[in-house]
């Protein structure tokens, strides 16, 4: 199934109410790889003393990005759901900076997609967080 990357990206965000609420922007979604940005927003702060974004907001970005990667994989027939997700928080994201996640469905079977993801801010050499997860794969119609 061929998926036009641009229209898929636009549809993906507009179809997910919570992705809209987080202000997510799709950079790229193609063939099992997704890149999604979350611009800094003071409503997402977890620690008011530092202005650092909540870990949960980074989790939501990682989960969305992982799901997008799976949905765009040629072996997946449609939607997906997260089975499990583990997130390692390496450091605090720098307040004021956009967080960008990149997820890759690196192995896809008939029923499960294995995904890894990395989130960075402007300092792209030092990841803010990494994630690994398993997602469901839907059969092709």
């Amino acid at each position: 199934m061929a998926k036009d990357p641009d229209s898929f990206a636009d549809q993906f965000i507009s179809a997910l109410p919570h992705a809209r609420a987080l202000g997510l922007r799709v950079v790229q979604v193609e063939a099992g790889i997704a890149e999604i940005e979350m611009p800094y927003d003071s409503r997402f702060i977890g620690d008011p003393q530092t202005g650092v974004i909540a870990g949960g907001a980074v989790s939501a970005l990682m989960d969305t990005c992982g799901g997008a990667a799976v949905m765009s994989h040629p072996k997946n027939g449609g939607g997906t759901a997260t089975i499990d997700l583990r997130i390692d928080y390496m450091r605090s994201a720098t307040p004021g900076q956009t967080i960008r996640a990149r997820a890759e469905a690196y192995h896809v079977t008939r029923s499960v997609a294995f995904v890894r993801a990395t989130a960075t801010d402007d300092d792209t050499d030092n990841p803010v967080a990494t994630a690994t997860g398993a997602f469901t794969v839907e059969g092709k119609v």
């Binding site: 997910l16 109410p17 949960g56 989790s59 989960d63 759901a81």
Partner: peptide
């Protein structure tokens, strides 16, 4: 609230919301 939905077809709460909720 409706803003918490991830999949509007089911509809289901966004997995990221669930993750954030558990972490909070």
């Amino acid at each position: 609230s409706d803003d918490l939905i991830g999949n509007p077809l089911l509809p289901a709460i966004h997995g990221g919301v669930t993750a954030a909720f558990l972490e909070i």
